[in-house]
């Protein structure tokens, strides 16, 4: 099963909507609760990253019998130094975003800790692709 969800940059009102849909879908399919929890932490953080940093994006979710694969493709400023961005505490979020309690530099480390396989590719000035795979 493959699902696609558009995400609008700056739309904090709907941040987490995709994560919520995927969580419900995984529950319906009877996926192990621990895997659901990890996947939702990783997906939510990646979804919020599109909202906080990009102009827009598309989240593709592929659910198989043995794993979930999620690709988050955004059009945005891109990440110049991915290793730096992966470091806990590093953030380029705006003051407004930080005021909401986001942008503490914990997002990407959270994604990494909650993914079995994580791939991040980025082109400055074009956008970023985050791929998360979790096995059941």
């Amino acid at each position: 099963m493959v699902f696609e969800y558009p995400v609008q940059g700056g739309d904090f009102t709907n941040a987490g909507t995709v994560s919520s849909k995927v969580k419900k879908m995984m529950r319906q399919l009877g996926v192990d609760a621990g895997v659901i929890k990890r996947t939702i932490v990783a997906l939510y953080e990646a979804e919020v990253n599109i909202v906080a940093h990009a102009y827009k994006g598309v989240i593709t979710v592929q659910l198989d019998s043995d794993k979930i694969y999620i690709k988050l493709d955004d059009e945005g400023p891109g990440i110049p130094d991915i290793n730096q961005a992966m470091q806990r505490g590093y953030s380029t979020a705006s003051p407004e975003v930080r005021e909401m309690g986001f942008g503490a530099g914990m997002g990407l480390p959270n994604i990494k800790a909650n993914s079995d396989v994580l791939e991040v590719h980025s082109v400055v000035g074009k956008g970023t692709t985050v791929e998360i795979t979790n096995n059941f």
Binding site: K37, V41, Y44, E45, V48, M100, G101, F102, A104, M106, G107, P109, N110, A113, N114
Partner: peptide
């Protein structure tokens, strides 16, 4: 009050104290 902190570390069933 840091949302990623809660996302990464809170456990199901917990009460969450925040000013957000």
């Amino acid at each position: 009050d840091l949302l990623s902190d809660v996302m990464g570390n809170a456990k199901s069933g917990m009460a969450w104290i925040t000013l957000q």
